[in-house]
Design a protein around this nucleic acid. Structure first.
Lengths: 195, 195
DNA sequence: CGCCCGGTTGGACGACGCGTCCAAGCCTAC
DNA sequence: GTAGGCTTGGACGCGTCGTCCAACCGGGCG
């Protein structure tokens, strides 16, 4: 169990994530200390292991994303628009904090064993989409599909396309990318019927 | 550079992947030795590092998948059917070799830095889908979408849904899962127009 | 037969990073 | 001024990786 981390230290850590290697076991505690300016002994005063530092970075990132998604949604708008807003907010977050986002996917092996991280991914990515898909199916503004499956598919598509954009282009334009993903999921790949 | 691995040793290693922890840095070389029956000294005779063993496992897995995908495709069938066959073959492979598939995604951080692994993922997952999407768009059997984006989206959706099925249900029925993914991508989530 | 040579193996070893511990310093509150 | 909590440097034990070597095995060849 870690002591509650003082805000300035949390900021330093989150700000420093970009300078660390992607594969967490190639990051030495001394690297974290150097990059963040927090000495090793102090890190171990607050965290009981290196993996707990990773967990801290990732849960903080997911909490912020969960909040950003909630803020992006206009409860009065039509479901398809709300869904678009959620996806755009998720992509915008990937673009804003690329380092932690890549840390998450690069270390899914560790992350998968931490229950609260799985819950965080669910709260930030899966659940907001699943809810809207179910609502839309119920009121007829979306075609009825299995919301569980479709939400998972969107999660996979959004994160993989987002990370691909980050890796290849080294940046991510949320409007541009969501403008590519959403029409694909909206209309599918069935050819338009000729009238 | 690793010596060419004798076939019996390769088989032992691939067969043993399921007994190893998901996070590669939690796997000790001694664990690999015990699980596979190949002594540590012999492993280091063929591989120059633990990561090279991981790379070997993953590239072999991706090569098999690439072959399976090529075999599943009937060049005379219609593009949408060929696309469905490709996706089904990918899911079937995830179901058949769940351990290596999970190893791949759990250690993307290491895998991402190895160029031939990235190429392997492309050859097994991305390229076959991209090609069909482009062909279908050209001959009108698929709605024209950016094949690059759509192939990436399908890759994300297929792997994430496949792994979710493996983790939750502990098995994967390729027909069932492809029967859920394909209609979603085929028709999208736009509500059907009332005539 | 005796030799060579490549593969196989056990065991020892150095390097290195993690996590622990302690003692000294510092600051604040009382 | 003193007590208690935070901060830090430095040293240490421990486990794992990767290396090395010497011994062994078995087949091919002169």
């Amino acid at each position: 169990m870690s002591r509650s981390v003082p805000a300035p230290m949390a900021d330093k850590l989150l700000a420093t994530a970009g300078e660390l290697a992607l594969s967490w076991d190639e990051v030495r505690t001394e690297d974290i200390a150097e990059a963040s300016g927090i000495p090793r002994a102090t890190l171990y005063y607050y965290f009981s292991s290196k993996d707990e530092i990773l967990q801290f970075l990732l849960t903080r990132m997911l909490e912020r994303l969960t909040d950003a998604v909630a803020a992006a949604e206009d409860p009065d708008a039509a479901i398809p628009d709300r869904l678009a807003a959620v996806v755009r907010a998720q992509l915008a977050h990937l673009g804003e904090f690329p380092a932690t986002a890549q840390l998450l996917t690069a270390n899914l092996g560790k992350a998968g064993k931490l229950p609260d991280l799985a819950a965080g991914i669910n709260a930030a990515f899966h659940e907001p989409v699943r809810r809207l898909l179910a609502l839309g199916a119920a009121n007829g503004t979306l075609r009825p599909v299995d919301p569980e499956i479709a939400a998972t598919a969107l999660y996979g598509a959004v994160t993989v396309i987002g990370l691909r954009s980050l890796v290849i282009d080294n940046h991510l334009d949320a409007d541009e990318v969501s403008g590519q993903i959403l029409p694909l999921f909206w209309s599918g790949i069935r050819p338009d019927v000729r009238p």
